[in-house]
């Protein structure tokens, strides 16, 4: 079983964000970065599948400037065998441009599965995975919250609004991974040491035309400061009055 996982470097979301002086990007000064959340789940799922199969290899692919090497090393410290950096100076907001570069790298890789996060935390698009599938002509299941693979076929569960569906598919396939499927392992010291020696190939990215650009990046309008209107059940009539006459939502 040979699996590729596409991982993106993204800031931790638990931080306070500022807009850069350009007004079109996040100010990265002082921000901590890590592997985008859902991509960590994808790495974990890939590792478990190869561990269960008893053979195979997981490869991590990241498109970005040299700082993505740190993200690739993190995946390696979890157990990924090797990494590929598709080098660009800046990562565009254009999902198709990214997907074209990833598809070019993955096309002849002989992968049984190609995995993605459900969406990247920074772009919050959820587009790159299904786009790569389409470009490669592979079957695809998005937002998998459960997965079983046996004898060259798989079944995945996807959560819908108020329902779920089970999807059957043949391998090779593209999957995007939702959280909750398998908690990502924490790299052990041994893994961190081993990661330093694993092969990491750097190649130029065959980025497609960039047609989606950021004109402005803004903090969302602040909500007006909250107010506490009272204590206990005694405050309920006042609450309902405010909901009716002030907020007008009843």
């Amino acid at each position: 079983m040979k699996i590729a996982v596409c991982i993106k470097r993204a800031p931790d979301m638990e931080q306070r964000f500022k807009v850069a002086p350009s007004g079109t990007a996040v100010d990265e000064a002082g921000l901590k970065f890590d592997m985008s959340d859902f991509d960590g789940y994808a790495v974990e799922v890939a590792l478990r599948l190869t561990e269960k199969a008893g053979d195979g290899e997981v490869v991590a692919v990241s498109l970005g400037p040299d700082n993505v090497q740190e993200t690739i090393r993190k995946a390696m410290s979890m157990g990924v065998a090797r990494g590929v950096q598709l080098k660009v100076d800046t990562v565009p907001m254009d999902a198709l441009a990214i997907a074209q570069a990833l598809a070019a790298e993955l096309r002849d890789g002989g992968y049984d599965l190609i995995m993605f996060g459900k969406h990247a935390l920074d772009s919050s698009n959820g587009a790159v995975g299904p786009m790569v599938a389409q470009l490669l002509g592979l079957p695809c299941v998005t937002a998998c919250s459960r997965l079983e693979i046996a004898n060259g076929t798989g079944t995945a569960r996807r959560e819908l609004e108020g329902a779920a569906e089970m999807v059957g598919f043949p391998l090779p396939a593209v999957l995007t991974i939702d959280e909750g499927i398998a908690r990502p392992r924490l790299p052990a010291l041994k893994g961190i040491m081993a990661a330093k020696k694993k092969p990491l190939e750097v190649k130029p990215a065959a980025l497609g035309d960039v047609r989606v650009t950021v004109e402005a990046m803004k903090l969302p309008a602040e909500r007006p400061p909250g107010r506490i209107i009272g204590e206990g059940a005694g405050a309920v009539p006042e609450l309902v009055r405010l909901l009716q006459s002030e907020a007008k939502v009843l």
């Binding site: 907001m93 772009s123 919050s124 004109e215 803004k218 903090l219």
Partner: peptide
């Protein structure tokens, strides 16, 4: 488009 899980809002130009 709300980006960064809604912590920022991006205005995007698509050509």
């Amino acid at each position: 488009h709300p980006a960064y899980t809604g912590k920022l809002v991006a205005t995007l130009a698509v050509r």
